[in-house]
Design a protein around this nucleic acid. Structure first.
Lengths: 341, 341
DNA sequence: CACAGCCTTTGAATCGTTTCATTGTTACGA
DNA sequence: TCGTAACAATGAAACGATTCAAAGGCTGTG
């Protein structure tokens, strides 16, 4: 329970100056082998471990990168975080992870926290309107890269996926199957990703005569929220059921699927064709394997760290906005079925 | 891009001493309203943010708790982490998250990192044999709580689930359905959770005449690994197929399910009854809703932080080992089907 | 008017590391 | 033998917040 050994203790124990110990740790080639061995032995004997707080106080900044995601439970973000972690490790940096849970207060809380920690940079998929705070941070030398959100290139670098294009792809696919009475499930619509996907879907629907798109606000992004929407659809009765449903993410789609097929005997894709978004691992192993829109998660994570590194290295970096294009993945939930009419 | 404002800058700007600024932040009631207002205004004008490194250097420890999990992608751990985060927030602490990915090196790396960060305590679901390192940490005043792993109460507190009981529950359930030719899928067996579940399953099988249990090492815990095992089962031909499969976790089970039903026309539960472990959200929405063994994830997370808090507060805490009992959740993958014989 | 007692404010010392100008040592060529 | 370069080791200063003994300012009482 004794106080942890400091570099000073090591220096005493090895009969050298503190500066020498520091050199053994940070510039080993400036130190003679004899001395180095003695110091290393002392370190070992005392079980010395660097105090990162002191190191970073001196350095003026930490060796960490802050990452704020909307929901760690969402596989899209977990794999993004993992990619970021791996990329950061290459630079000898670590990742501080924050989960905003779509809550602007928690988001703000994490930005505060990370600022106190003097993170080198920030990766964030924002909920609230944080542009001004991030701008201020940048002016203090803490660059930010926006993830999963297109940003004005004058202000920030960003990595995003073209959600409008993804929404179009999904709706167009349903329309191509002959479906005309479409429903969009997602919400709250204040979330950019959700509303962009809806805009894309609307664009596709507008191209086809006699097609309609109904919006079902799910007020949440979970399997549970999806189940809720599914149940309320069933309550309406069969006559009023859409024949194609596009969910703003796979969790919602799985919830809808669960509700329609398991509890209420609606057939997918015969009665209703269903497509989700994100292509999470579980989409392929759902009750009915789920069609989806795939986003290149790994590439997003790696690119995000890359852009952040650029901003860290360059004095006056040009901000870049990288936009990935999503891809349609067809599985049984929309495949091989003609329109039910 | 100018240097961040320090407490000294604030003091100058507000025409007070540094100690006063510190008091405004930490002991507001010791400061007169007049002064406090002036200081707060200065803080606001300069955009001052506390430097946590300096604060923690002085304090001798951080306000963070380190959490090392086996796999952030596994929903069991994501919900555990979230519970831990919420509980930590109550104490004003934050969580540093590390993902060992079942890799002893990465695990060790995170322990190093967290030690450098001077975390207050550690929550870990260990891969390698780290007992001695953790013991050493504890003697330096950094308590550890083992998660999802029973520990010797003389050395550590721990929160775990009785994996043996869980394995027994699962196998017993298959046997109760009349299945006799069982298979256990999981691996590597060096993982305690996996081998304990196997031991429980063996115990159940030993109780029933004519029942056999075959072990299929999956060498991994992912959907993909499960799919691999499923494929190799199919390659054997129908005659050699088990009639009940118990997977050491749900991801494996979903993989096996995917392989058997989607690509190879094996019927679940008619031909093969299948049960997983963990009862993750997706179990209920699988191709065939998956029976599973449920662990009380939230309670585990909360209890873990509780035990850690006890160790932090008490001078000479008694270590406690809390063991939760898992619960059988029956769904379609094992339900309503007689033995195929 | 002196003084005690209370409240507020001060500022030097401290935490552990890195940095860097300075000092000490060695070896080699002149 | 001396001078000088090359290399090693030194130790004081700095980073920014907190702490705490001490000083200062004020009120009210004798």
């Amino acid at each position: 329970m004794s106080r942890a050994a400091s570099i000073k203790d090591v220096a005493n124990h090895a009969q050298v100056a503190v500066g020498t110990v520091s050199n053994v740790l940070n510039n080993p080639d400036r130190v003679s082998k004899r001395t180095k061995d003695r110091v290393l032995q002392a370190i070992d004997e005392l079980g010395f471990v660097r105090n990162d707080a002191a190191r970073q106080l001196r350095a003026g900044h930490s060796r960490t990168i802050g990452v704020v995601v909307l929901d760690v439970g969402n596989p899209f973000f977990t794999s993004l975080v993992r990619a970021a972690e791996d990329a950061a490790a290459v630079n000898g940096s670590a990742v501080l992870l924050g989960d905003s849970g779509h809550d602007a207060n928690r988001e703000s809380h994490y930005i505060d926290l990370f600022q106190e920690q003097r993170v080198q940079g920030l990766l964030i998929s924002p909920v609230g309107d944080v542009a001004d705070r991030l701008e201020a941070l940048r002016q203090r030398g803490v660059p930010t890269v926006l993830v999963d959100r297109l940003a004005d290139e004058d202000r920030f670098s960003s990595v995003s996926v073209d959600d409008d294009a993804g929404g179009y792809l999904a709706a167009r696919h349903l329309l191509d199957l002959g479906r005309r009475k479409l429903a969009f499930v997602g919400g709250p619509l204040s979330i950019r990703q959700v509303s962009d996907r809806l805009i894309g879907a609307r664009r596709a629907v507008a191209e086809v005569d006699g097609a309609a798109l109904e919006v079902l606000d799910s007020d949440g992004q979970s399997v549970l929220a999806g189940r809720g929407v599914g149940n309320s659809l069933v309550d309406r009765g069969a006559g009023d059921m859409p024949d194609g449903i596009f969910c703003a993410n796979d969790l919602l789609a799985l919830g809808v699927m669960q509700s329609l097929t398991m509890m209420n005997g609606v057939r997918i894709p015969e009665d209703v064709a269903l497509i989700g978004y994100d292509d999470i691992d579980f989409a392929a192993s759902a009750v009915v394997p789920l069609s989806s829109i795939r986003q290149p998660t790994d590439a997003i994570g790696r690119t995000a760290i890359e852009l952040l590194t650029e901003e860290l290295d360059a004095q006056h970096p040009r901000h870049r906005a990288v936009v990935f294009t999503p891809e349609l993945v067809v599985r049984h939930s929309t495949a091989g079925a003609e329109a039910p009419h």
